[in-house]
Amino acid sequence: MKVSAQLDAFQKRLGHRFSDVRHLLQAVTHPSMASPHRDDNQRLEFLGDRVLGLTIAEALLRADPAAAEGLLAPRYNALVRRETCAEVARSIDLGEVMKLGRSEMKSGGRRKDALLADAMEAVIAAVYMDGGFDAARDTVLRLWSDRITNVAEDARDPKSALQEWAQARGEAPPVYTEVARSGPDHQPDFTIEARLQSGQTARATARAKRQAEQAAAAALLEKVSQ
C-alpha cells in the first residue's frame, strides 16, 4: 500500500515503521470518517488503553521498587489520564494525520484532548498489532520517558487532592459550576468555579471543562492551604 508523505513523516516522529500501514490508518481514523470499507479507531483505542496501562505500571514499579501502592496509583493515573495522552499526541503532531469528518474538522477536532487521547491510545495498539508487545512498550517508554522520570512523588490530581482535603475536615465534596463561557462555538473557553461547603471559592478558565475544573481545584487548594 502506498503511504502518503504525511504518514511517512508521522512514522518517523512516532519512532515505529509499520510493516502493515493499514494498522496505522485505522488508528488515525475517527468514527466520523468510518465507512463499510474503512474501520474507525475505537476498537484499537480499547486495546491501546490496556497496553499503555500495563507498560506504565511496569515502568513505575521498576523506577521506584520501594514505593507503596498508595503512591504508585496517583503517579499511574497522572501518566495515563486523558490530558497526558493528549500532550504526548501533540508532541508528535498526531492531530496532523487524524482523519476526521467535516463536522469534527469544523469544530476543531484536531486540537481536542478527547480525540487526541483516543487516537494516541489507538496508535499504541496499532504498534502492538504490527510489531508485538515489545515494539509497543518501546514506543510508550520512548514517548513517555520524561514524564515517567519527572512524575511528582505525590501525583494526585488537584480535584482528588481537594476532595481529600475536604473529607478530612468533615466537609462535603467540592462543587464545580460553569459560571461563564466565551469565545467561538467551535473553540469555547469555560470558566469554572470550585466551591467548598465552607463557602470558599476559586475560579479558573480553560479550553476544556475538565481542565478548568482541575485548574479551579488547584487554585482553591492553594488558597485553603495557606
Rank of each mutant, 00 (worst) to 15 (best):
S4K: 00
Q6N: 09
Q11R: 12
L14C: 06
H16N: 07
F18P: 00
D20A: 11
L24I: 08
Q26I: 13
V28T: 03
T29H: 04
H30N: 13
M33E: 15
D40R: 01
L44R: 12
L52C: 06
L52Y: 05
L61R: 12
L61W: 15
A63M: 05
P65E: 03
A68K: 11
L72M: 07
R75H: 01
Y76K: 09
L79T: 00
L79M: 00
T84R: 13
A86H: 04
D93L: 10
D93N: 12
G95C: 11
R102G: 13
S103W: 12
E104I: 06
E104K: 03
M105F: 13
R111P: 01
K112A: 10
L116T: 05
A117N: 10
I124E: 07
I124M: 08
I124K: 06
G132Y: 04
G132K: 04
D134M: 09
A135M: 02
A136S: 06
A136L: 02
R137Q: 07
W144S: 01
W144A: 02
R147H: 03
T149G: 03
N150R: 13
E153S: 05
E153D: 09
D154T: 09
R156V: 03
R156T: 09
E164S: 09
W165E: 04
Q167H: 11
G170I: 06
E171P: 02
V175E: 13
A180C: 05
G183L: 01
D185Y: 11
P188W: 00
P188G: 07
D189V: 13
T191E: 14
T191C: 07
E193R: 08
R195Q: 15
S198E: 07
A202C: 07
R210N: 11
Q226N: 15
